[in-house]
């Protein structure tokens, strides 16, 4: 009973955060709304009993991705037209299209065959999860490490090319580069 209530609460919070994302003007506030959504989702995962995912949701998404995003927002505090005029020209067509889409998707979504009583706490704990992940799906684990290395290299390379081309005084560009590379490294450490 209380579980269901909490579930509805967290879910509603997630949706509200999403809506706030669309409405707020300052990018920083949008980021905070997104963080709120993510934390709520973490809560939902926890309530569902998928603990390992809940934890990693917070750690990776909120802790790394959103932190990096916040850094970027702080760095690029540009007061340009997108600040004052936050909606694009396609506000109403987009609104209409996505409403229809949401309606169609929700209306045709899977009509469930009733609740399934499942003791899932044990299944999604860290130990059984790891055993499966690093046991049966070890290849994909390795591949993800490769992916992350490549991502780091790519970020460095993208930034270095710009650095090499700009031989002379590069004004306010330079300080941005190390911060970006550092943020990338942060993401790696948490992943």
């Amino acid at each position: 009973m209380i579980e269901n209530l909490l579930l509805v609460l967290f879910a509603s919070a997630a949706v509200m955060g999403a809506v706030l994302m669309l409405v707020l003007r300052h990018p920083m506030r949008v980021a905070l709304a997104l963080i709120a959504t993510m934390i709520s989702l973490g809560g939902v995962y926890g309530l569902l009993g998928v603990h390992v995912i809940a934890v990693f949701q917070i750690m990776i998404y909120v802790g790394a991705v959103m932190v990096f995003m916040v850094y970027a927002i702080m760095l690029l505090d540009v007061r340009d037209p997108s600040f004052t005029d936050r909606y694009s020209a396609l506000l109403w067509p987009g609104l209409a299209a996505c409403t229809v889409l949401a309606g169609v998707l929700v209306g045709s979504a899977w009509q469930g065959a009733g609740p399934v009583a499942g003791a899932t706490g044990g299944l999604f704990g860290v130990q059984p999860f790891s055993a499966v992940f690093l046991g049966r799906y070890w290849l994909y684990f390795e591949l993800t490490s490769v992916l992350l290395v490549v991502a780091v290299l790519a970020a460095v390379a993208v930034v270095q090319i710009r650095g090499r081309r700009r031989a002379g005084p590069a004004a306010d560009a330079e300080p941005a580069l190390p911060a970006g590379a550092a943020a990338g490294q942060e993401g790696v450490r948490h992943g």
Binding site: P93, G94, L101
Partner: peptide, 17 residues
Amino acid sequence: SLHRYALYVVVGVLAAV
């Protein structure tokens, strides 16, 4: 315009669904 392209994506997805 990226926004327009995204709108096309929505329309396409809608049609596919």
